[in-house]
């Protein structure tokens, strides 16, 4: 299944690893921050509703 990358295997594989790694980190950070901020907002809104 794995194609024969010849003598450039290192360059090709590492660029895929670097690029996909960066994308995954970016997506993960975005989602993580989205969840955290959403939770914080829910908390504050609930508190606000209770108080009036």
């Amino acid at each position: 299944m794995m194609p024969d990358l010849g003598k450039y295997a290192g360059a090709v594989l590492s660029s895929y690893a670097v690029a996909l790694g960066l994308i995954v980190v970016l997506v993960a950070l975005s989602i993580w921050r989205a969840r955290r901020v959403k939770a914080a907002l829910d908390l504050v809104e609930k508190r606000n509703k209770r108080h009036g």
Binding site: S30, I31, R33, A34, V37, K38, A40, L41, V44, N48
Partner: peptide, 15 residues
């Protein structure tokens, strides 16, 4: 997604 996050963060600060 990130714009939603920024909006929510700002609304939280405002509240």
């Amino acid at each position: 997604l990130r714009t939603q996050t920024e909006i929510r963060a700002r609304r939280t600060r405002a509240l």
